[in-house]
Nucleic acid binder design. Structure first.
Lengths: 234, 234
DNA sequence: CCGAGTTTGTTCTCCCGTTCACAAACTCCT
DNA sequence: AGGAGTTTGTGAACGGGAGAACAAACTCGG
């Protein structure tokens, strides 16, 4: 039952679980570096910031990698999760749009240490070409197809202004990219089978703002707004 | 029924809806700039990348701002959503950690245009002090408490290395910050009543990698891993 | 004024994810 | 060897969100 072959369907892991596996992986790396050989679901859950029941259920989707009465072998579980996610070897990644954010992403050491290798930086602006960023020179956007094919790139990162993002996405998809991480504040439309994840900085802040406002019971200006609203709708 | 007072509970909006309101707001701004005065739920849903039934249900949590047979007034709905989120006026924000990412965040124009004002950039490294970033000079981290109090800052952004993030969070909370946007790849522990949202770049990539691997049916190296696994567990 | 067409707001059903609680399985001590 | 203590893996109950479907409410043309 715990033996997994390439034909059984033990691999359809719930999306919510997939999103947490990288967190567990990070926590396990931390425990390993601290010299911990074994940990209980309680400890790992604490390190990952989740509830232990949820952790155990998540891990149960991968197989039975723990030992009752003992816990989990840190190194073994770390490897199994890395394998499940697919980061036992590096994925080549291209970043398009080398503005402030693109710079930061290119220099982010976490990519390299967590299973990703930036193979190219592209920008449409000729002024940026041949500039060295993080030891990689910036190339023309038109080199995209060549790079994707030569390096077998499946994952693209979009860090352009919103206006350019859809065009970049279209070109990426046409070139063979199947997964896109989009930092541009716009909705991308892509064909079925292409995954898009979006990171929108101001949306995150706006969500926080909503909760601050709730906690505070509304600001002075908002009280005015609400009063005005009542007068109008009453 | 649609009249809302400060005592009724029309304000407890589902979390999933809150997370989408900023997307609708952005879509409405786009429509307004394109000169559209009125739009149907179908149009707005398309612009926001969601299903129209979901959009209507989301909006129904705010009140009855549409007109049957007609649709929504773009400007009116835009204002109502902005008010609900709380971005009718600017929120002061402080950014801690002015490395590559901090630079990018400080320069990000989307903050200013979407209801946020960066009032201070802080860094523990004296080498960075008095450097001008986006027209704001970088100040010592120890100025945090003074700035939070003077400017009434409720939202803090952490863009430090992981090792420093928990300390920064503790100081922020002690100073009076109630909401934190965390870019450091670590789990923050904060008291009840403090909101934390996290943005982890390599986690997003890892989630994409998982799906790429699934689509591809596993890489060569992974096939080896799986074969090895069968030999061991069989 | 009335009927046809349009679009919202809401109800109902289904599904996914979370949490509780406990049996199964292991270790350790006597 | 056996019992006490520990920890995993999972079955079951529960809650929230997604989507379909429809009644209510509006516009427009005659």
């Amino acid at each position: 039952m715990t033996a997994r072959t390439s034909t059984d369907n033990a691999r359809d892991i719930p999306e919510a679980t997939v999103a947490r596996l990288p967190v567990y992986l990070r926590a396990l790396v931390g425990l390993a570096e601290a010299g911990t050989a074994t940990c209980s679901s309680e400890e790992l859950a604490a390190a990952a910031g989740v509830n232990s029941a949820k952790l155990r259920k998540d891990l149960s989707h991968l197989g039975s990698y723990g030992t009752r009465g003992v816990g989990y072998d840190v190194e073994y579980l770390r490897y199994q999760i890395a394998r499940e996610i697919g980061v036992t070897q590096d994925w080549p990644v291209v970043i398009v749009g080398i503005g402030n954010l693109g710079h930061a992403l290119a220099n982010y050491s976490g990519f390299r240490s967590r299973g990703f290798r930036v193979v190219a930086l592209l920008d449409a602006d000729p002024e940026r070409h041949d500039e060295l960023v993080a030891g990689i020179d910036v190339r023309p956007f038109d080199d995209l197809e060549e790079i994707v094919e030569d390096q077998g790139v499946a994952i693209g990162v979009i860090a352009t202004p919103a206006i350019a993002a859809q065009d970049v996405a279209d070109r990426m998809v046409a070139a063979g990219v199947t997964s896109i991480l989009n930092f541009a504040p716009t909705v991308l439309s892509v064909p079925d089978g292409v995954d898009v994840r979006k990171v929108d900085l101001s949306i995150e802040l706006q969500i926080l703002a909503y909760h601050v406002q709730r906690k505070a019971g509304g600001t002075v200006a908002d009280d005015f707004d609400r009063l005005h609203d009542e007068e109008v709708t009453a």
